[in-house]
């Protein structure tokens, strides 16, 4: 293995006319008799060019990320200059007076993602544990594939279902019931007041939760699969019940991976556009009640970007994009870091 490990072949260190190290260097006129001295294999001269080609493709990936950073930063400068730090703390959003603040969309993004995590993560982990520990073997492969496939369903589908099926259901059944039973409770009740529109932050959060569910379940299942079978057998061997095995062996072992899976899900929930845009209601205000319409960063961008007139408006929207970029990439970096600690490179 060491012989061809590319680490031992640093073609870039050689000049363009030298060959790969695995081939003996041309021995010149002092070679064996009857040999022309030509030991360079056909096409060896192409090697540096090929290395350069693949490396520049890899560097292009870096440039894309750097480009995203730079473009967002430059494009949002006018807004950041005009509003300064108040952009983050102001909840104004007035295209007429050109007064913009990011607080309402940021608030909406955080609240809907929090609801999504609250609903999606326990269900996803439960489903993943079911799949790895309890599910009959015959069903396991099918169900696992089904969950993986559901994670690939485009988010616009979840949004449409939310708008046409789930929002009416919420406003007719769920929200009135919540208002009746939870509403009178002090403090908590304030979260659930107001007219049951169906459309609003609660519904958007629930749909987001459904959307991240198969995603988190699929990643957690892959993380659980990295568990060495010996540990599992040992746990059952000393008489652990399935729950004790999950609680004291599997979850501690997979903790950083599961955290990574949850954070990947969070990253997705924060940046998700279509599932939310349909049902958030797009209202630039901060309401305590979760029944009220609100907005998220991505929904604001999707709804208003093409209609934005004026440099300040456009630049404020791009500044929102910059904020979203910073939040999600911080979360995603953390997620990948956690996942790499358990050695799981998850392909989603």
């Amino acid at each position: 293995m060491e012989a061809v490990n590319p680490k031992t072949i640093p073609p870039e260190a050689n000049g363009p006319d030298t060959v790969v190290m695995t081939v003996p260097a041309p021995s010149g006129p002092s070679g064996p008799s009857g040999w022309s001295g030509e030991l360079v294999p056909k096409g060896a001269a192409f090697e540096p060019a090929f290395v350069w080609l693949t490396r520049s493709a890899a560097i292009l990936v870096l440039l894309v990320l750097a480009g995203i950073c730079a473009v967002l930063l430059i494009a949002s400068l006018p807004a950041l200059k005009k509003f300064g730090p108040y952009f983050l703390t102001s909840s104004a959003w007035n295209p007429v007076t050109e007064n913009f603040g990011a607080l309402a969309p940021v608030y909406g993004t955080l609240v809907t993602s929090a609801i999504a995590m609250l609903i999606g993560v326990p269900l996803a982990l439960g489903a993943a544990l079911f799949l790895t520990e309890l599910c009959p073997h015959r069903l396991r492969a099918t169900l696992a594939t089904a969950i993986d496939l559901l994670a690939a369903v485009p988010s616009i589908i979840y949004g449409m279902w939310g708008l046409f099926v789930f929002a009416p259901f919420m406003s007719t059944y769920v929200q009135p019931a919540i208002t009746e039973y939870v509403g009178p409770i002090p403090v908590v009740g304030a979260l659930f007041t107001g007219a049951p529109y169906g459309i609003g932050m609660l519904t958007a959060g629930l749909i987001l939760g459904l959307m991240v569910l198969p995603f988190v379940a699929a990643v957690s299942r892959q993380v659980f699969a990295t568990m060495p079978p010996v540990l599992r057998e040992a746990a059952y061997g000393v008489g652990a019940t399935p729950w004790e095995y999950c609680r004291r062996v599997l979850i501690p072992y997979a903790r950083s991976g599961v955290t990574g899976a949850v954070m990947l899900g969070l990253g997705r929930a924060l940046g998700e556009t279509m599932a939310v845009t349909f049902i958030i209601g797009n209202a630039h205000r901060i309401s305590v009640s979760l029944f009220m319409p609100g907005t998220t960063i991505s929904a604001t961008l999707a709804n208003e970007f093409t209609e934005a007139v004026g440099d300040v408006y456009l630049s404020s929207l791009l500044a929102l994009g910059l904020i979203l970029f910073c939040i999600t990439f911080a979360v995603l970096f953390a997620a990948r870091f956690m996942l790499s600690r358990i050695g799981a490179r998850v392909a989603v």
Binding site: V64, V71, L72, A75, L264, G271, T273, S298, L301, T328
Partner: peptide, 13 residues
């Protein structure tokens, strides 16, 4: 990281 980056950001770029 780019693999799970929000696609709307790519659109902005």
């Amino acid at each position: 990281t780019l693999l799970s980056a929000p696609s709307i950001i790519i659109g902005l770029f």
